[in-house]
Design a binder for these strands. Structure first.
Length: 328
DNA sequence: CTCAATGA
DNA sequence: TCATTGAGG
């Protein structure tokens, strides 16, 4: 879910056109999870091929990626590696929520309550190895590069932006700020064409809040992150106030609160994450035969629609080819 | 979520 | 051109 910073963040509204020509590192886990949650029938059933394999994520990746490529964006997907040992509680909690949601979904289906069914189905989405593997496979056919992180994908993506390999990170999670991504895009959708696109700069955000990145991380630790529970009764606004007149250690001491975790170790998750520096970014031309076999033959997608998506990918290939030709 | 058809 | 709607797999 990420840290709850919504109330203290003031994003800029931007247009898709503003991203023309930009390399965007896409938070794969975040994006795919959203596809799995939202691409469903009215009763909550996900899209599936004839064999019953879920295909919602493939639909989302194919159509959104081809559309943003058509708009001039050069995407790189970034996948999560091993979850941090601190994430254990969060992982466990999410599994419970998922399992409960699945029960409620089936119950609502029996009752014939479509709205309720969909609501719970949305929450039952799960990232299986199949989901990740099939996503990577599709990206390979599409010629879209992806990077495998060692740990958190957001940390890897942030590194890539700092290094200049990408212009910004696309993710819904504010965690990217904590990981130090200089630029963040939220709501990178194709329907959110009009004005929903949000743009955040780390520098601007910090100066608006009058804190350092280190202080913002401490605010997050008070509010609660995927890696720790946080302090009861402290939200982002309160946390910010505390940080401005005190600091985390003093506050904990003053209120006699024990976080039960090594604070410096928590800070290090954001400040010194393990990064995969051995990656290659290259956009290739679409494997038209491969993509049609994979999507249409193996997963029952409409050939007409897949072909139209392939067509949109053309923008990327021509730029890439002309560049390659130039250096030959 | 995105597509494509539809009608304003 | 734009908003709406049902289907997609």
């Amino acid at each position: 879910m990420g840290v709850k910073f919504k109330d203290i963040i003031s994003p800029e509204k931007i247009n898709l056109k503003d991203l023309d020509g930009k390399i965007i590192a896409i938070d794969g886990a975040n994006t795919i999870y959203q596809f799995l949650s939202s691409i469903r029938q009215r009763d909550g059933t996900p899209l599936m091929d004839k064999e019953g394999n879920v295909t919602s994520h493939l639909s989302g990746i194919l159509y959104r990626t081809s559309s943003i490529v058509e708009k001039g964006i050069k995407p790189i997907y970034v996948f999560d590696g091993k979850p941090s040992e601190f994430k254990g509680n969060t992982v466990e909690q999410r599994r419970e929520i998922r399992q409960n949601a699945e029960k409620e979904w089936k119950k609502a289906l029996k009752e014939g309550n479509e709205a309720k069914a969909r609501k719970f189905a949305t929450r039952s989405s799960r990232m299986s190895p199949y989901i990740v593997d099939s996503s990577k496979k599709l990206l390979e056919f599409m010629g879209i590069p992806y990077v495998q992180s060692f740990g958190e994908g957001e940390a890897q993506a942030a590194y890539m932006v700092r290094k200049g390999d990408a212009w910004g990170v696309a993710s819904q999670d504010y965690d990217c700020l904590l990981f130090g991504s200089p630029k963040i895009i939220r709501n990178l959708t194709i329907s959110g064409n009009l004005s929903d696109l949000e743009y955040l700069e780390l520098k601007k955000t910090l100066s608006q809040l009058s804190v350092s990145r280190e202080q913002l991380i401490d605010v997050a630790l008070m509010v609660g992150t995927d890696f720790n529970k946080g302090i009861k009764g402290v939200g982002s606004k309160t946390g910010l106030k505390i940080m401005k007149k005190s600091n985390l250690e003093s506050y904990l001491k003053e209120k006699n609160i024990n976080l039960d975790l090594d604070i410096d170790e928590l800070r290090n998750i954001f400040l010194n994450p393990e990064i995969n520096k051995d990656y290659e970014i290259k956009w290739k031309s679409v494997d038209k035969e491969g993509i049609i076999d994979y999507m249409c033959v193996q997963h029952d997608f409409s050939e007409e629609r897949v072909l139209s998506a392939i067509k949109k990918m053309g923008k990327l290939n021509t730029t890439q080819k002309s560049l390659e030709d130039w250096f030959k």
